[in-house]
Simulated assay, not measured.
Amino acid sequence: MHNRQERLGTLMALASFCEHRLLDMIRSAALLCPIAFLDQITSSIARASADAFVGEVSYWLGLHEFNIIGRSGDELLLQVCNQPGVNCYDLITSFTGRNCCLNPSSVRVFLDHEPQPTAMKNMIHMAQMIRRGTIAKYDYDSYEENMKHYGQAHPPAYNMSNIPNNFPLFLSYGGRDALSDSNDVRHLLKMLKCHHKTKLKVRFLQNYAHGDFVMAVNAKQLVYDPLISFLNLF
């Protein structure tokens, strides 16, 4: 990021930026269904993947990229879909929660471009936080590797107190979101309880699930218009 006007949309990255004194690169942040604490996650696919150590096994077998499209993605889905409680006949709902406001055309556009590939380590990191209920950096599961990367035996937690109380934050989350569960978000909000009230805007949308924030037919009115109005204040 080289422009002060740029917005940051990832909570852990924001905390890390503040930790490394890079806050002057950004002036505000929009956090939509933020992924922070994950131990209350209700996504059957995400929970089953974490409990079955799918990411770790795949990485040990030499698969370093998670790409849902292609043979590797098919094999991973097959493992997950065999787990109890996972309904792979409705993948979007199993993954994101029951979205309220999607239409068939928007879903088709979404599936033409998503999900994007990511590093298998990202999947492992998410699984670690789901199982442990922590918001911490990647655990290499090795004393030597953790010492090399962090200077300590266990990965450090992301310190939310590094985010200044007067830093403008817009945060919106949904009552049906299976990835960013409302209980997990409320846990996060407790950590932000000292944030200046005029610099923290929270919008809770009871009927929204994870996908609604991206492509709901009314997302412009319910999410993005208020978001832009807030960011334009600063």
Rank of each mutant, 00 (worst) to 15 (best):
H64M: 05
G62M: 06
S72F: 01
N99H: 11
D39Q: 13
N99G: 15
C101T: 03
F66V: 11
Q40E: 14
R47E: 04
F53C: 05
S49H: 05
Q40F: 05
T42R: 11
E75K: 11
N87L: 06
S58C: 08
T93N: 13
E75G: 01
L61S: 11
C100W: 09
Y89W: 08
N99E: 11
A52D: 15
G55E: 02
V86H: 01
F53L: 11
S72L: 02
Q40M: 06
L61Y: 05
C101W: 03
A46G: 00
S58K: 08
T96S: 15
C33W: 02
I69C: 08
A46L: 13
S94F: 02
H113C: 06
S49C: 05
P104L: 10
A52H: 07
A48G: 10
A48V: 05
Q40D: 14
R108N: 10
E114W: 11
H64R: 15
G70D: 07
E65D: 11
S105Q: 15
I35Q: 03
R71T: 13
N67Q: 06
F37E: 01
P34M: 06
E56H: 08
L102V: 12
T96M: 10
S44G: 03
S44K: 06
G85T: 08
G62W: 05
E114N: 15
V109Y: 11
F37V: 00
I68R: 07
C81F: 09
V109G: 04
F66H: 04
A48S: 15
F95S: 10
L76H: 03
F53A: 12
D112I: 00
N99T: 15
F66A: 08
T96L: 05
W60G: 04
Q83C: 12
S49N: 10
Q83F: 01
G97M: 06
E114I: 03
G97A: 10
Q79D: 06
G97N: 05
Q79R: 14
F95M: 15
F110M: 11
F95Y: 14
I35R: 02
S105C: 07
Q79H: 05
D39N: 15
F95C: 05
R47W: 03
S106Q: 13
A52P: 01
G70T: 09
D51H: 10
S106Y: 05
T96E: 04
D112M: 12
G97L: 09
F110Q: 06
S94H: 03
A52K: 08
S44F: 01
Y59M: 14
N82G: 13
